[in-house]
Structures are given as structure tokens and as C-alpha cells.
């Protein structure tokens, strides 16, 4: 199937638990823990929005997607530090970013100890008194075992479904 090799059930279960843990750390605002324990130093963390085009249009040369995130470890760490600032007014009072993760598929990656992980995500974000917004997107991840056997996120590409983003911004970990 697509040349993808499914993983054994125990690995599938391990990845599933890892994704849930990640979602819990984000919801609990433990972004430093997330960065330290779940993110690889070689991370490429991307999210895109796609411009709407005619399907058969092959003559228009301009790229059809725009980056929302295009971060390496350095910049992800910068964002985490920003979130910890007592002067980050947008996050005080606190926001709640709750992930609902579905349609999990896990396959062997290019190297041993690497896994390709596909998910669908729904995020409900609550902030201030009157704001609740939802975001639907797909994730294509690569997770890899580090020297200690711990799974770490090496690559994430999120594609956000909504072209006109009613949730105003994506200032959270997707």
C-alpha cells in the first residue's frame, strides 16, 4: 500500500500514546517539557495554507502554498520562551488549546527507528471570555528514536484545511 510498511502493534500503541502525551503537554501549557523531552534538535516544523487554484491549471508558475510555520529548533525554542514571558499578554489570562487527534496511521520510516505518522487533528482553542475557535488540519510527522530509545519529533508538516482562517491566527503548537 503506497510502498508503506505498517508497524507492529506495540509500536503503533507507543506512537499513539506519544501523540496523546504531546497533546496533553500542549493543553497543560508545558511547552518547555514538550520541547525538552519530545522534540529532536533536527526538527523541521512546518505548517502551510494552500491557495485555491483551478485543478488543471499547470501554466501559472507561482507557488501555491504559503508557510504559516517554517521553524527549526532554534526558532521553536524562541517561541516557547516567548510563551513563558510574564508579558505575553495574549496568553494571560490563560488560553486552552485542546487537540483531538484521529485517523492515526504509523509506518516504518526511511531508517530503522524512524516512523512516518499521519493524523487528522481538530483543535478547539478557548481564550478570553467570548472566543472559541476550531481548526481542522492534517499532520504528516516523522518520529525517531534517540540514543535512549525515546521517541522524538523530527519533522511535522501540517496542512490547514480552512483557507480563510476564522480562528484569526495559529499562535499555538499544532
Amino acid at each position: 500500500m503506497d510502498g508503506l510498511k505498517a508497524v507492529a502493534h506495540d509500536v503503533y500503541h507507543e506512537i499513539e500514546q506519544t501523540l496523546y502525551r504531546e497533546a496533553r503537554l500542549i493543553c497543560d501549557e508545558r511547552l518547555r517539557d514538550w520541547l525538552d523531552t519530545m522534540v529532536d534538535q533536527e526538527i523541521l516544523y512546518q505548517a502551510v495554507s494552500r491557495q485555491l487554484r483551478v485543478r488543471k491549471d499547470t501554466r501559472y508558475a507561482a507557488k501555491d502554498h504559503v508557510n504559516i510555520f517554517n521553524e527549526n529548533y532554534h526558532y521553536l525554542a524562541m517561541r516557547v520562551t516567548q510563551s513563558e514571558s510574564p508579558m505575553q499578554w495574549t496568553a494571560d489570562p490563560r488560553e486552552i488549546v485542546r487537540h483531538f487527534i484521529n485517523n492515526l496511521e504509523v509506518y516504518e520510516g526511511e531508517k530503522p527507528g524512524e516512523y512516518r505518522v499521519f493524523t487528522n487533528c481538530l483543535v478547539v482553542r478557548n481564550r478570553r471570555i467570548y472566543e472559541e475557535m476550531t481548526y481542522s488540519y492534517s499532520r504528516k510527522d516523522v518520529w525517531r528514536r534517540d540514543a535512549k530509545g525515546q521517541l522524538r519529533l523530527v519533522k511535522r508538516l501540517s496542512e490547514v484545511d480552512e483557507r480563510f482562517m476564522r480562528g484569526k491566527n495559529l499562535n499555538f503548537i499544532l
Binding site: V66, I68, Y75, R79, W89, T90, N169, N171
Partner: peptide, 14 residues
């Protein structure tokens, strides 16, 4: 520019 004033810009949401 994406990082500061894009959809997930570090200043955009402020």
C-alpha cells in the same frame, strides 16, 4: 516576515 507577522506570527497575535 512569516515568523513575525504571518498567521502564526510572534507579533501578529499581540
Amino acid at each position: 516576515a512569516t515568523r513575525t507577522f504571518g498567521t502564526a506570527g510572534m507579533l501578529e497575535g499581540d
